[in-house]
Simulated assay, not measured.
Amino acid sequence: MMSDEVNTLLLPYQLNYSLWQVMFVIREKGGCTSIEMAEYLNVSKPSIAKRVHALTALNVLIHVETEDKRQKKLILSPQGEDLFKQCSVEIDHFEKALISQFLPNDIQQSVSIFNRIIQTLECAKLGEDHAK
């Protein structure tokens, strides 16, 4: 349901939740390759390729060379940066409206629990990666 609401917010910008995820990851990481993005979002490389193609068609992404000539790093274009800022404001307002009914202490406790769950999952994944 959350992604449906975000899709509705992003529709006027010709975006959807999955395209927003790509923009968000690129912005958070200061740029990354498609492979890094697929791993981070835990989705297939062809899925990322489709999203990158759509965002490139919207002039939101720029491909830059890396040391490995087989891979290109993706960064947000100036237009992509502007679009990211506009959409961030909309999404932030939406999220604030959702949590406004909760007490600050309850929110902080929930954030703490989610962070511990993420840490547990990351440790489990590291253990799996080392076992391979």
Rank of each mutant, 00 (worst) to 15 (best):
G80P: 02
C32P: 00
L55G: 05
Q109C: 04
W20F: 04
E95H: 02
L74W: 03
M37W: 00
A57E: 15
K125E: 13
A49K: 13
V60C: 14
H53L: 15
G31F: 06
V22H: 02
L121T: 06
Q108R: 12
T8L: 13
V25A: 09
V89S: 10
Q119T: 07
V25G: 02
F102S: 13
T56L: 09
W20E: 07
G31V: 06
A131E: 15
V60L: 05
N7D: 15
E81H: 13
K125F: 10
S112Q: 11
L9I: 12
L98M: 14
L83D: 04
E122I: 11
V52Y: 01
A57Y: 04
E122A: 14
T56V: 04
E5H: 12
F84K: 03
K85D: 14
A124S: 11
R70N: 06
K73S: 09
P78K: 08
L103G: 04
I113N: 04
S3K: 10
L55D: 06
V43K: 05
E5V: 05
P46N: 03
Y40R: 05
E28R: 14
I48N: 01
K50D: 14
A38D: 02
V89P: 00
K50E: 14
I26V: 13
V52W: 01
F84C: 08
H63R: 12
Y17H: 12
